[in-house]
Design a binder for these strands. Structure first.
Length: 502
RNA sequence: GGGGAUAUCGUCUAGAGGUUAGGACGAGGGAUUUUCAGUCCUUAAGCCGGGGUUCGAUUCCCCGUAUCCCUACCA
């Protein structure tokens, strides 16, 4: 039987990195096995705040970002449509009614107040919490009277009171749970929507799902899910529980740890291939290959359930940054530049591109004055960039109006723009550079070496003050590439300003 | 309170009875250079504790401990 797996997110906002990994693992598993990858929207919780209709677009964007596109989903359908649970309510209701008819489920008329009070009491007395099954054995008359009175009800699963449920986890082995300890799970809510358990079992069956790969946090409730499958008379898919991704403090990954949601990662400028590669290494390993850099085809080729580990993994942002830097360094300059442009625009370093209605002249000017300059500058910082968002800080001095000492780093100034030979040096440079026939890194270096010899200064004694004078800082790309990229006019202007105010 | 899972360098992990316990990030040192970054070389750093089983346990079993998860008309 060919593999059919699904990613079943809820639209609660921008997807969490843990859910993204679940999606990717499902996708890799399907691709590796030549199976089908399905995405299904589990939007059965209509509680305000927990139901974010726009979340669906984030979900779609995240899958596109990784290139982990489903074979079947709500965007372009498939043979198991619908893929949005709220569009299929009658189906779940039918399932619930059938279970009632077969006495595998029952209507429960208990109010939330009673349930809350019961739970509070149980907790106060140190008793296990759970539904006391009061409505499970209601007489026909009681039931009829409740219905006649119009009391709202939910449908609960009549959990077997004896025996055991075995969760056959593909990586953890068999895990046995006592049925008497399992709650009579609500299957259908008063609003007519199914709960996760009903919707999941019903849809997994309907869609022919063969394997369930989901977070470890579902393991404890797996016996309840299995009992829903059993009650419905459906085969239980193979189960694979993925280790959780946690924060450095071993707590659930949250905002204060850094980026956690898809949007956060995109904003900070992580490349899809870096995030994909890194995420796959959290809770999965290719084995004894002693390698951690993998392309997507390599991941597909190697991915297997045996390689999944069983303990939670801490999300190491440092390692992600390293990996992102690695992929940025290997990036085609054209692609890198394209990815950096939005950051530069957002920071106000470069103007917005002219509208399509703008004149050809305007477009040409933008191309020459902005894009060509960006094209020269970005590659110079490529090997230093760890996240795209850093580009703003890295190349800011190329664009910003430096007006000595405004915009200059204090320490840099103190160290290199207070040297006694500064003024003669700068004046000589202005003279020589202005007369330079060819504005290339090589010519600039040759000229500068001559200057340093002429003034009997060490090369480093020339390099450092020059860099600070022209960039306002002590770190950056090679000085002559920097001068070359900045252009003669900008270079001379900055040297003059510093020289005059020195 | 009940139930479940998990436990190898700081972190991600390899290991599946006998290994100098391997790799990567990070950290330290060195080389290169024009600063930073990068690259190359290099060092330190680990089997949660206690019992078993075994000729021999990081590895298998039990107990303890710790951590996380579930215990909702949330997924």
């Amino acid at each position: 039987m060919s593999v059919r797996v699904r990613y079943a997110p809820s639209p609660t906002g921008s997807p969490h990195i843990g859910n993204l990994r679940t999606a990717i693992f499902n996708w890799l598993f399907a691709r590796h096995a030549g199976g089908t990858f399905i995405a299904r929207l589990e939007d059965t919780d209509r509680t305000p705040g927990r139901y974010v209709p726009e979340g669906i677009y984030e979900l779609e964007a995240s899958m596109r970002f990784f290139g982990a596109l489903p074979d079947e989903w709500w965007v372009y359908g498939g043979e198991s449509a619908p893929y949005i649970q709220s569009h299929n309510l009658p189906y779940y209701q039918l399932c619930a009614e059938r279970l009632i008819r077969e006495e595998k489920a029952y209507r429960c008329y208990c109010t939330r107040e009673r349930l809350d009070a019961m739970r509070t009491e149980q907790q106060a007395r140190g008793l296990p919490t759970g539904y006391d099954r009061r409505c499970r054995h209601l007489s026909e008359e009681d039931r009829a009277r409740n219905e006649a009175e119009g009391i709202t009800s939910v449908v609960r699963l009549a959990m077997p009171l004896e025996g055991y449920t075995v969760v056959k986890d593909e990586i953890r082995g068999d895990i046995t749970y006592e049925n008497r300890l399992q709650d009579d799970q609500v299957l259908l809510k008063t609003d007519g929507f199914p709960t996760y358990f009903l919707a999941c079992a019903a849809d997994d069956h309907r869609m022919g799902i063969t394997h369930i790969l989901r977070g470890d946090d579902w393991l404890s409730s797996a016996p309840k899910l299995i009992q829903v499958f059993v009650a419905l008379g459906f085969d239980v898919p193979k189960m694979v529980h993925l280790p959780l991704i946690i924060g450095p403090d071993k707590k659930k990954l949250s905002k204060r740890h850094g980026a956690t949601q898809f949007l956060d990662f995109v904003d900070q400028g992580y490349l899809p291939e870096a995030l994909m590669n890194f995420i796959c290494l959290l809770g999965w390993s290719a084995g004894d290959e002693n390698r951690e850099l993998f392309t997507v085809p390599e991941l597909i080729e190697r991915f297997s359930i045996e390689g999944i580990s069983e303990h939670p993994a801490i999300f190491d942002y440092e390692k992600l940054k390293w990996m992102n830097g690695h992929y940025i360094r290997g990036c085609e300059p054209g692609r890198l530049i394209g990815m950096c442009l939005p950051y530069l625009r957002k920071a106000g370093l470069i103007p917005e591109a002219p509208l399509s209605s703008a004149s050809d002249d305007e477009k040409e000017t933008y191309r020459i004055e902005v894009l060509d300059y960006v094209r020269r500058v970005i590659p110079l910082e490529q090997e230093r960039m760890k996240m795209l968002s850093e580009v703003v800080d890295l190349v800011g001095f190329f664009f910003a109006e430096l007006d000595y000492p405004n915009g200059y780093e204090e320490k840099a100034v103190a160290k290199w723009l207070k040297v006694p030979y500064l003024k003669p040096l700068l004046e000589k440079q202005i003279e020589v550079y202005s007369a330079l026939a060819e504005w290339t890194p090589e010519a600039l270096e040759a000229a500068t070496r001559e200057i340093s010899e002429g003034l009997t200064l060490k090369f480093a004694e020339v390099i450092h003050p020059t860099r600070v004078a022209v960039t306002g800082r002590t770190v950056g790309p090679g000085l002559f590439e920097t001068l070359w990229a900045m252009g003669k006019e900008r270079t001379i202007t900055r040297l003059k300003t510093v020289s005059e105010r020195a």
